[in-house]
Nucleic acid binder design. Structure first.
Lengths: 234, 234
DNA sequence: GAAGTAAAATTGGTTAACCAGATTGGTTTG
DNA sequence: CAAACCAATCTGGTTAACCAATTTTACTTC
C-alpha cells in the first residue's frame, strides 16, 4: 500500500466519522425534514475537525439528496424523513469501491438495455456517430494497434442513442474502472479484437433496422467472452 | 426560476467552460496519458477563474476517472488515451439533470435485476432486514400514515441482498430524485399502499424461496402501476 | 565529466481571513 | 399594541495566505 492510498483511507475514515456524528446529531436533536443543521463552523468545532472536512461531507450527503445547502442561510435536512435518512446513511457508510465482478455484472445489464432502447429511439445522427466509432476501431485493429478506447467509444455511442440520460451517466461512472481492471486482469485478447469488429457491425445493423430484440441478442453475443470471464472468477 | 437555481446554473456554466479549456489544452499540447497538466495556479490564471473553480473541475474529472491528482506533485491525465478522453468529456459536457422518465426506466431495470440476484444470493440477515422494513411499512399504512420512506427502505434492502455494490450505489443515487418527483407528480396513490403490502411480501417470499424468476416477476407486478405511468407520459 | 547532494522553487492540500446576502431581534412609529 | 424597519449578527461561499512533500536545479566532490 502506497502513501497515496493510505492518506485517502485516513481521509475517508475521518469523513465516515463525521457522517456518523451528523446522523447521531439529527437523531438526538430529533431534526425533522426541513430543519436546519448547526452551522458548518459550529459543526467543525463540535467534531474537532476542519471546516473543510465538514463541507466535503455535506457536499457528499447533498449528492445523495440527504441534505441541502442554502447560501447565506444554512444546511437543511432533506424532506425524505428520518427513517429513510437513517437507512440511506447506513448504506452510504457501507459503500466501498465495488469489486470488478459487480462492475461487469452491472455493465452487462446496462448495455443490454441501452442496445434495446437504442434500436427503438436512435436518430440518424446517432447512427453516424456509431458508424464513425466502429470505423475508427477497425483502422486501429487492422494496424495491429491497441483499440480499447475506440471500443469504449462505440459502447458510449450506443448509450447515447438510447436516449436515457441516467444510463449514460452510469456508463460514464463505471467505464474508467472497467478499463483499469481490464488492463489489470488482461481481460482483453488480441485475436478477440477482430471478431469484435463484426460484432460491433451486427449491433449497429440491428439498431439501424430498429430491431430491439436482435440488438439485445447481438450485444449479448458481444459480451459472451466477458460472461465467461465473469463466471470463471466466481 | 429562483436565485438559487440561477446561481447554480452560472456556476455550472463556468465549470463547463473550464472543462472545455482543459480538453483543448490537452489536445493542443498533445498531452499523452500519464503526462502532467499545468499546475492549478497557472490554470486558474490562464483561464481567468479562481483556483477553487479549477480544483472543483479537476475533482469532477477525477470522479469520472479522466484525471488523477497526486499531492505535492501535480495533476495527471489518466491512461485511457486521447480518443476516449475526448469522447468522454464530450458526454460529460452534455450531461444534464436526467428527466423523470429516464430515472424511472433505469430504476425498473435495476430493481428487476436486484430482485433476481437477491433470490440467488440473499443471506439470513438480508431476510431479517427485508422483513423488518415490510412490517414497518405495514404499521404505517394501517395507521393511515404516509409510508413512502418505509417503501423505499424495503427496496434498498432488496438491493443490499443482491450483493452487487455497484447497483446499491446506483440505487442510492437515483432514490432521492425518484422520491422528489413522486411527490411532485403525485405518482403514489393511497389505495395502492394496501396492495403494495402484499406485493412486498410476495417479493420477499420469492427471494426467501431462492426463486429468481418468481422474484423478478413479482417485482414486475409491483411496478405495474409505475409502468403505466411511464407510458402515459410518453 | 559524472555522480551525489543540498537548497530553492513548485506542487496539491490545508487553514484562516474575508465577503455578500439572509436572518433575527430590538426599536421605532403609526 | 402591532406592524414596519433597521442594524447587528450569523450563514455558506469565496479568496488569499500558508504548509509539507516533492521535484528540479545548481553546486560540490571525486
Amino acid at each position: 500500500m502506497n502513501l497515496d492510498t493510505l492518506t485517502k483511507n485516513e481521509n475517508d475514515e475521518i469523513q465516515r466519522e463525521i457522517i456518523v456524528q451528523i446522523r447521531d446529531l439529527i437523531n438526538y436533536k430529533n431534526l425533522e425534514p426541513g430543519d436546519k443543521l448547526p452551522s458548518e463552523r459550529s459543526l467543525s468545532e463540535r467534531f474537532g475537525v476542519s471546516r473543510n472536512n465538514v463541507r466535503e461531507v455535506i457536499r457528499k450527503l447533498e449528492f445523495y439528496g440527504l441534505l441541502m445547502s442554502k447560501p447565506q442561510s444554512g444546511t437543511f435536512v432533506a424532506d425524505i424523513g428520518q427513517v429513510a435518512l437513517n437507512g440511506m446513511i447506513e448504506d452510504i457508510l457501507k459503500l466501498d469501491t465495488p469489486d470488478f465482478k459487480s462492475l461487469v455484472e452491472t455493465r452487462i445489464l446496462l448495455e443490454l438495455k441501452t442496445a434495446r432502447l437504442a434500436a427503438l429511439r436512435r436518430t440518424e445522427q446517432n447512427l453516424k456517430e456509431m458508424e464513425a466509432t466502429i470505423k475508427a476501431y477497425e483502422n486501429k485493429v487492422h494496424n495491429g494497434e491497441d483499440a480499447v478506447q475506440e471500443d469504449l467509444l462505440f459502447h458510449l455511442a450506443v448509450a447515447r442513442a438510447s436516449g436515457n440520460g441516467t444510463m449514460i451517466t452510469f456508463m460514464l461512472i463505471i467505464t474508467p474502472e472497467i478499463i483499469t481492471n481490464f488492463e489489470k486482469y488482461h481481460v482483453c485478447d488480441k485475436n478477440q479484437a477482430f471478431t469484435a469488429i463484426q460484432e460491433h457491425w451486427d449491433i449497429y445493423e440491428a439498431i439501424k433496422a430498429k430491431n430491439p430484440q436482435l440488438a439485445k441478442a447481438n450485444m449479448k453475443t458481444h459480451f459472451s467472452a466477458l460472461y465467461q470471464y465473469l463466471y470463471n472468477i466466481e
